[in-house]
Amino acid sequence: MNVLAIVAHPDDAAIFCGGTLAKHADRGDHVAVAHMTRGEYGGLGSDTEEDVAAVRTEESRAAGEVLGVDEVEFLGFKDGRIEYSLEDRFVLVDALRKHDPDIVLTHFQDDFHPDHQATARLVTDAYYMASLPLAETDYEPCDPDNIYYFGKPTSSFEPETFVDISGYLDTKIEALEQHESQVDFLVEHGGIDAEFDNLVDSLRAEGMTLGKRVGCKAAEGFAPLHEQAQGYLH
């Protein structure tokens, strides 16, 4: 199975679906993470955007190694400036076709962060177009089975599919800790991202809370685009 996570920022994969990615990688599936941006706005003003992006790129690669993913790439969008356009939709069509995934993981559209909103819409529309033979790009058409959306507890996101990550919660946390600059940034950022205060402890608690809902030690939750293909994610 091929699994592709398309995330807006370098730490999003670890935060939202790190346990699921680690589980699929451990069982031998091909796992890739495509980052829309390099997260260059994720600094407190003491560094340039270029410096922040360089640090976050390396953090992403380190986190990918912890999770066991096969590919870590960056799609070239600007942090805080992802917009919906036909041109950008085709960038995502090409990304999907390049990886030819069975399942795609990405952001839930009802999210406070505008980059998450735009990413969700671009991926969803590209998912439809990726299978159309006459929509020509650099790669051949593909037909992923499903999209699974992840979201913040502050949005209207309500998971329906749960992945047991009981054996991978520590791996998820270790991957998150590779994003050292962002663990510090989110603490300093304060109220805007209040749900991420004490991020490591919060994610561990969230995983355990979701696990209790479905009878396991820890879980991650997703909302599938198509109900009939939920089994692919487990």
Rank of each mutant, 00 (worst) to 15 (best):
M1T: 13
V3A: 02
A5M: 02
V7I: 14
V7M: 13
A8M: 09
H9C: 03
D11S: 08
A13K: 11
A13W: 11
A13H: 12
F16Q: 06
L21A: 00
K23M: 11
K23G: 09
D26S: 15
D29P: 00
A32T: 14
V33H: 12
V33R: 09
A34V: 02
H35M: 10
H35E: 08
H35N: 15
M36H: 02
M36F: 13
T37G: 01
E40R: 00
G42C: 08
G42D: 10
G42H: 14
G43N: 12
G43Q: 12
G43L: 10
L44F: 11
D47A: 14
V52R: 07
A53G: 04
A53L: 04
A53R: 05
V55D: 09
T57R: 08
T57E: 14
E58D: 05
A63D: 03
G64P: 03
G64N: 03
E65T: 07
L67G: 02
L67W: 04
G68I: 03
V69K: 02
V69R: 06
D70N: 13
E71I: 08
E71Y: 06
V72P: 01
V72S: 04
F74A: 05
F74G: 02
G76P: 02
G76K: 00
F77P: 01
K78V: 14
D79M: 03
G80I: 05
E83K: 05
L86T: 13
D88P: 10
R89L: 11
L92E: 03
V93Q: 10
D94R: 13
D100V: 01
V104A: 03
F108H: 13
Q109V: 12
Q109S: 13
D110H: 14
D110R: 13
F112I: 10
P114M: 10
P114V: 08
D115F: 03
T119L: 14
A120V: 04
L122P: 09
L122D: 04
A126F: 14
A126M: 12
Y127Q: 02
Y127D: 07
Y127R: 01
M129T: 12
S131C: 03
P133I: 07
E140F: 04
C142I: 07
D143W: 08
D143V: 04
N146M: 01
N146G: 00
I147S: 03
Y148P: 02
G151E: 01
P153S: 01
T154D: 09
S155N: 03
F157E: 07
E158T: 09
P159Y: 01
T161W: 01
T161L: 05
V163Y: 08
D164E: 03
D164Q: 09
I165Q: 06
S166W: 11
G167L: 00
G167N: 00
D170Q: 08
I173Q: 07
L176K: 04
S181G: 02
V183N: 05
E188I: 11
E188K: 15
E188S: 15
H189T: 04
G190P: 05
I192L: 15
D193S: 10
A194G: 03
F196P: 00
G207T: 05
L210D: 06
L210Q: 06
K212E: 15
K212S: 15
R213H: 06
K217N: 11
E220M: 12
G221P: 07
A223M: 11
A223W: 11
A223R: 14
P224A: 11
L225W: 15
Q228W: 15
A229D: 15
G231Y: 08
H234P: 00
